[in-house]
Amino acid sequence: MKNTLILGLVVGLFGCGDQAQEGVKLTGNVEQFPTGGFAYVERVGENGIEPFDTLNVDPSGDFSEYLNIEKPAFFRVNFNGKQIISLILTGEEDEVVLNAQGNDPRGFSEVSGSYDTEYKNQIDAMMQEYRVKVQGMQQAQRQARANNDAQAFQTAQFQMMDVAKKTESELKALIREASPSLAAFYGLQMIDATQNFEFIDSIATELQAEMPENFHVESLLSQVATKKSLAIGKEAPEIALENPDGEIIKLSSLRGKYVLIDFWAAWCRPCRAENPNVVRVYNEYSDENFEILGVSLDRTREKWLGAIEQDGLPWLHVSDLKYWRSQAAIDYQVNAIPATFLIDPEGKIIAKNLRGASLEAKLKEIFG
C-alpha cells in the first residue's frame, strides 16, 4: 500500500512527578526492572518527542503516578531504554494499568483503561496479521517466479489483492468505530489515501469538530485540502504538452475515452519494469475505447525517445523535459513514479496508482 503517511508512535520522558492526587493515574508492574534503572513518560509534541514525567519504580517492579494531561496526545513509556510502550491518552481516563516485561524491545506488555490505546493496539494487531499474510504470498510469488510458473504467480498476486481489500475494509470499520479520536487518526496513517479520499475526508471532518486545535488534526486537514483537487470523482487537471513530433497534445482532446495517465521516465527502473505489463493491457484493451497518455519526467529528448523505442510503447507520449518540475507533475502532485491516474470518458478521475494485477482487474471490471 504506497505513499500511504504512517505515524511513528513515540513518547516517554523526563520531568518531575506531580504529587497531587490529580490527573490520570498510571499504575502497573515491570517484571524485569534493574536496580538503578529509569522509567520515563514522553509525549509526541509538534517538535518531536518531549519529556513529560518520570515513573518511580519500586524494587518489586510496581509503579504508580498521576499524569496531568490537558488534551489528547500520543505518549510512550520508556523502561530503561529497553522496552517502549506506546499509549494514547486523553486526560479523561481514571486509571490506566500498564504491565510489561520491561527489559526486551519485544517483551510482553498489556494496557487497560485507555479507550484510545485499546483501539490503537487493535489496529496494530490487524496490520501485523496483514503483514504476515503478505510475506507468505510474496514468498509464493518468488517461488512461482523461480519455477517459471506464471499461473501460480498470478494467483498469488490476486490473493494479495483480496487480502489487502479485506484488511482495508476491516480497518476502515475499526477507524469509524474509534472516531473521533487520536486512535482514528492513527489508523488513517495505514489507509491508502489515493483510493480512500472520501473516507479520510469524512474522518478528518469529525476530528476537526472534536479537537480543532490538535496539531496532528491540523496536519491531516492540510493534507486533505491539498489532495481534494485530485480526489476520486474530481475532474482531472488539463495536460497540454508536446509529443515527440513537437505537437501539443491535450488530455481534454481524449474526452469520450477511458484514459490512463502514466507518469514515468527512462531513468525510472520500476517504470521500465512495469512497461511490459502496461503494453500487454494496452494491446488487450486499445480497441475498447481505451487510451494511454504517457507523461515523461525525463530531462533529455534522446533518453525519452530511446526508452519509448526500446520498450515498444505504442501509445501517446508527451513531455516538457523538465524532470520533477514538469507542469503536469506539479498539477497532479506527483512526487514518485510510476504514478497513474485512470480518467473516465467525462474526464473525471476514477482510480489512481493502478499497475500490474490491479490495473488489469480494473480494466476487466470496466470492459468485461
Rank of each mutant, 00 (worst) to 15 (best):
E238K: 00
A100Y: 01
V318F: 09
E291A: 11
L359Q: 06
R43I: 14
R325L: 07
K120Q: 12
W324R: 10
Y115L: 04
R299V: 14
G45H: 05
V57F: 01
P237C: 05
I261A: 01
I292M: 13
K352P: 10
V96C: 13
H317S: 07
Y332M: 09
S296N: 03
A152S: 05
N277L: 05
Q21K: 15
D149H: 10
P51R: 03
I84K: 13
V163P: 05
Y130T: 12
R131G: 02
W267E: 09
F367I: 10
I175R: 07
K165G: 04
F215L: 07
G45K: 00
V224A: 09
S252E: 07
N29Y: 11
F14G: 12
E302F: 02
K25W: 06
A146H: 08
V295T: 00
G8P: 13
R299G: 15
Q223K: 14
I200A: 00
L297Q: 13
P212G: 01
L251Q: 07
K2Q: 13
F79K: 05
S169N: 04
G91C: 10
V30P: 13
F185S: 03
S253H: 05
V281M: 02
N335C: 12
Y66P: 07
I85V: 15
E129P: 02
A209S: 12
G306E: 08
M190R: 08
A140Q: 14
M126I: 00
G15A: 11
A39V: 09
N214S: 15
A100G: 01
E213K: 15
L87T: 05
G8Q: 04
Q101G: 06
E42L: 14
E309L: 02
A240T: 04
E110W: 07
G347L: 07
H317P: 02
A178T: 04
